[in-house]
């Protein structure tokens, strides 16, 4: 179980910026249990976006967004719809957001922060990783996680150590920031890179006492 909490609506709206047509994609796995994904969360966030003047082009549910085969299969039916939308707002953990970004060339925004990996870890069948930093920045980094992909978890760009696109720590590992740069360029969001990201708030990694009191948290951990 990956524990997620909704980002404040204001933060989601700030991330969406001037984008008008938003595709809502919810996870029906762990996020459903946390009420950050699933039917209920989709309809809540749909109403909030519409109230803010956005046009919701779809509310699509996938059982486990961390499974890219499931995501790709389900989204294949929505190709035309996705083409016409400005971005995809993903209601899942950080792994789900990264998985979506990998299968669709669209701007993705996380609707939730992942706060704990708990015990059982969804399906998680591939190389996307989430450290449950509690302050998901995947919208600014093109759906590629700077916390897990960069050996130094840098937030403002690459260090000087990458060589031929590989990390200074391991010459067989891609430089996360090079991937982020290429991705942002591809989706036309290089301006995200130019914004200074403020330091992480590590206290967000601590699951709140409210979360720790829930039966889900107890059962799983």
């Amino acid at each position: 179980m990956l524990f997620t909490q909704n980002k404040p609506t204001a933060e989601v709206l700030e991330s969406l910026g001037a984008e008008k047509n938003i595709f809502l994609l919810g996870c029906n796995g762990c996020a459903e249990a946390c009420e950050t994904g699933g039917e209920k969360a989709l309809s809540t966030i749909k109403a909030e976006l519409e109230k803010a003047g956005k046009n919701v082009t779809s509310t699509t549910l996938v059982d486990f967004l961390c499974n890219k085969v499931l995501v790709a299969t389900r989204l294949a039916r929505e190709t035309d719809n996705i083409k016409q939308t400005d971005s995809i707002l993903v209601l899942s953990c950080g792994v789900g957001v990264q998985a979506v970004s990998k299968v669709v060339d669209k701007v993705v925004h996380p609707a939730a922060n992942t706060v704990s990996l708990g015990g059982l870890q969804g399906l998680w069948p591939s190389d996307e990783r989430c450290q449950a930093c509690g302050d998901c920045a995947l919208d600014y980094t093109g759906g590629i996680c700077p916390i897990t992909f960069c050996a130094k978890s840098l937030l403002n760009g690459p260090c000087g150590g990458a060589q031929d696109g590989k990390c200074e720590v391991d010459s067989e590992k891609d430089c996360g920031w090079q991937l982020i740069y290429e991705r942002l360029e591809k989706v036309g969001r290089l301006e995200n890179f130019k914004k200074i990201r403020t330091p992480r708030d590590h206290s967000k990694m601590l699951p709140s006492s409210e979360l720790r009191k829930t039966s889900f948290y107890d059962i799983e951990v």
Binding site: I196, R197, P199, R200, H202
Partner: peptide
Amino acid sequence: MPVFDLDSVQLLSA
């Protein structure tokens, strides 16, 4: 342990 609590840009700001 690699710390990197801040990056170079954030250190300059600090």
